[in-house]
């Protein structure tokens, strides 16, 4: 069953002339893990904001077409209702710390306080969410004293604790070091395994290949590819349009040109590349 349904969505920010999203049609099933790839300025973030309700409710501007997520229809609902159903985390971990709380535990409870969850229910929910993301030991620390990767996991936990039906992640690791990236992807893997509906905008294609059920490629506000990770991430079109691609794909493509790569499919990850060369 589709939990996300976008029909002919076109959107333009205020004070701009060009549409950032053009005629987007997208269905995502419940429990599906969808990755969105695209160069800078392709509309990835805007798509994420649209799915999370911030376009048009926060950013204003002109939108046409219909946006339906988790049973809500964009034009007929408020941002308030939207955030109860769709969670959003984004790039800069530092800016996602609310600032309203002195400890990680309180920080995670902030959203629950805002939506009026009773106190007895709050504590176990925060504890469960922290266990899920593996940050239980950070509970009493100040959110500002943490590393980027830890802060991003706190940000994710703060969203997860609100029990969204759909989770939208806009390049959550783009400002993290390799250790932080691994920590955050560890959490994302857990969520995917638990059957959460996740939409992840990301350019680290090797990670995408590991978890995504499906990948769409966004270019100048349009979806140009939509399919399985193995197909989309190795497509020649990505190369033409200036997408970032996996170095293993590049190597195998060169190897294929001189006859060293015999498989029909190109690899995305190291393991696939090693397997392919072994044969």
């Amino acid at each position: 069953m589709a939990i996300v349904n976008l029909q002919n969505v076109t959107y333009r920010y205020p004070l701009t002339d060009e549409s950032v999203l053009k005629n987007i049609n997208l269905q995502v099933d419940e429990g599906e893990f969808l990755a969105v790839i695209g160069p800078n300025g392709s509309g990835k973030s805007t798509l994420c904001y649209t799915l999370a309700g911030f376009v048009p409710h926060f950013f204003k501007g002109e939108i046409s077409g219909s946006v339906e997520v988790a049973g809500l229809e964009s034009s007929a609902s408020t941002l308030d209702e939207w955030v109860m159903n769709v969670g959003l985390a984004f790039q800069n971990p530092f800016n996602q710390i609310s600032g309203a709380k002195f400890t990680v535990f309180e920080e995670i409870a902030f959203g629950l306080e805002n939506i009026g969850v009773p106190r007895e229910e709050m504590k176990p929910r925060v504890e469960d969410a922290m266990k899920l993301t593996g940050i239980t030991d950070l509970a009493d620390r100040s959110p500002y004293s943490l590393s980027g990767g830890q802060q991003q996991r706190v940000a994710l936990t703060s969203i997860l604790v609100m029990q969204p039906k759909v989770l939208v992640l806009d390049e959550p690791t783009s400002q993290l070091d390799p250790i932080g990236t691994r920590e955050v992807f560890g959490v994302i893997r857990t969520l995917a395994e638990k059957g959460m509906t996740v939409i992840l905008a990301e350019h680290k294609v090797e990670w995408i290949a590991n978890f995504a059920d499906r990948v769409i490629a966004l270019h100048e506000g349009q979806i140009i590819l939509d399919g399985l990770p193995g197909e989309v991430l190795t497509s020649d079109i990505l190369l033409e349009k200036g997408f970032g691609i996996s170095r293993y794909t590049s190597v195998a493509r060169k190897a294929r040109a001189i006859g060293l790569w015999k498989n029909s499919n190109l690899p995305v990850t190291l393991d696939e590349a090693v397997d392919g060369f072994k044969r």
Binding site: F58, Q96, F110, E113
Partner: peptide, 26 residues
């Protein structure tokens, strides 16, 4: 420049929710 992103982050956590707020600590 950080203001806008931070506003989005707290909105995403129900900052403007019209429900009656509760609190963690008594």
């Amino acid at each position: 420049v950080e203001v806008e992103e931070r506003a989005i982050a707290i909105e995403a956590r129900g900052f403007t929710s019209t429900r009656v707020k509760t609190s963690l600590n008594s």
